[in-house]
Design a binder for these strands. Structure first.
Lengths: 230, 230
DNA sequence: CCAAAAGTGTTCATCGTACACCCATGT
DNA sequence: ACATGGGTGTACGATGAACACTTTTGG
């Protein structure tokens, strides 16, 4: 195909904003790492890597996430493609950003540590290299939008969770406190949860009932327009 | 920077979904063209082109739109990046898709014709090459979402327009009919329009008042959460 | 005078929001 | 007994949705 050969080629990278929820601190966190290569060696950055010839971009994003966390089968979504001329001072790189939602405790903490990665609260983000800070803000906005229209909050919690835990997560995502009566009422009215016959007793004397995500009415809900504004 | 050289490089293209509104037919249209080169010569496709070394991706998207329509300063937004292995059978191409909203009559119709391009109603889209049909559906969905939260409908109409015209546009975007009383009330309550002392008399005996987009309360509105669900 | 599109108000149901007290239990 | 977090109900206002008739004027 001689036509294509007239055109220039580019390095294509994938950078991932990996969100996790810390149930103890009730904080939303991002997985950051210290670069162990030039340029900007020693500075904080997102996890990233280069696209290979034989893989789709989605596949590359999953591969890179797996390298760092040991996880596959994770909620991941393409965020935006960053293609400014000088975004990476080392070379012209086109970067396709993804964001992922994972359960911190489900990840391979050893593997994470080996890569020099750390879970950092979004409220205390250091400055990141290049345009990575902009990537994180964009990802956070998109996460907030998604959380209103799709039941993705569950991706950040264990299989069984309590309603106060879920509320804490949404409060962390939206960065504001919610009314627990309204939260509970709206949530349960969606018929997305199954109550288990088991209580979580760590965080209170009374104990809170565990629930599980049960996507029975999920399809209906999507059609009628899921609305999780709280 | 020897590190980067270890990695493969890729052709990066930009494809644009160009939306226009046909006031006469009250239809939303897309600008399509017949490819005059291989592969898939003679088939319908979106407007596209290759990224150059010295330009940002946004710049490339604008350049390509300008080539076809003669327009600059147009509403454009990045849509998604398509990077499947075999999406273009000719070669591995990463395509960053954009969508644009333009006023059909503001475009250079001669230029459009020269490129073999045609305005096609979205209700009568032919099959497009590669994954271009998927690009158009994704763009349409995003346009529908945007139209609910940002006053972008105005991008598709002339500077002065009537409320029935605007309603027709939204009906075309959402592909459903709207109640004109509710539409008018909600619209005017936003204080985004300025009524002109002039009537449009083409489409009715009585005539409809012209309005102009007047973004006085626009900032307020964005903060309080623009909601244009109708 | 008639056709055709513009313009105008009200009612009802739904939903979001604000708000305060009792419950269960481990210490 | 008491401290701690879990769990519950109600009232009000705002907003979306449904709905029918009058107005203007060119032909």
């Amino acid at each position: 195909m001689p036509y294509y050969q007239e055109h220039e080629k580019f390095h294509v990278a994938v950078d991932s904003i990996i969100f996790g929820y810390d149930e103890d601190g009730r904080e939303l966190k991002v997985l950051l790492l210290k670069r162990n290569f030039q340029p900007a060696k020693g500075e904080w950055s997102l996890m990233g890597g280069f696209l290979k010839n034989n893989e789709a971009i989605d596949t590359a994003a999953k591969r890179i996430l797996h390298q760092l966390t040991g996880l596959s089968d994770v909620y991941m979504e393409q965020l935006y493609t960053f293609g400014e001329l000088d975004r990476d001072p080392g070379a012209r790189i086109i970067s396709v950003a993804y964001f992922a939602l994972i359960r911190i405790n489900a990840s391979d903490l050893e593997l994470v540590k080996t890569h020099g990665a750390t879970w950092v609260p979004i409220s205390a983000m250091p400055q990141l290299i290049f345009d990575h800070s902009a990537m994180v803000s964009r990802a956070l906005k998109k996460l907030q939008v998604r959380a209103r229209t799709q039941p993705i909050g569950f991706e950040l919690l264990p299989d069984k969770f309590t309603i106060p835990q879920l509320q804490g997560l949404y409060e962390a995502i939206y960065n504001k406190t919610l009314d627990k009566r309204n939260f509970r009422r709206k949530l349960l009215s969606m018929n997305l949860l199954e109550k288990l016959e088991e209580k979580e007793k760590e965080s209170s004397r009374k104990g809170a009932w565990y629930y599980r995500f049960e996507p029975r009415n999920y399809e209906d809900l999507l059609n009628r327009g899921f609305n999780f504004e709280l």
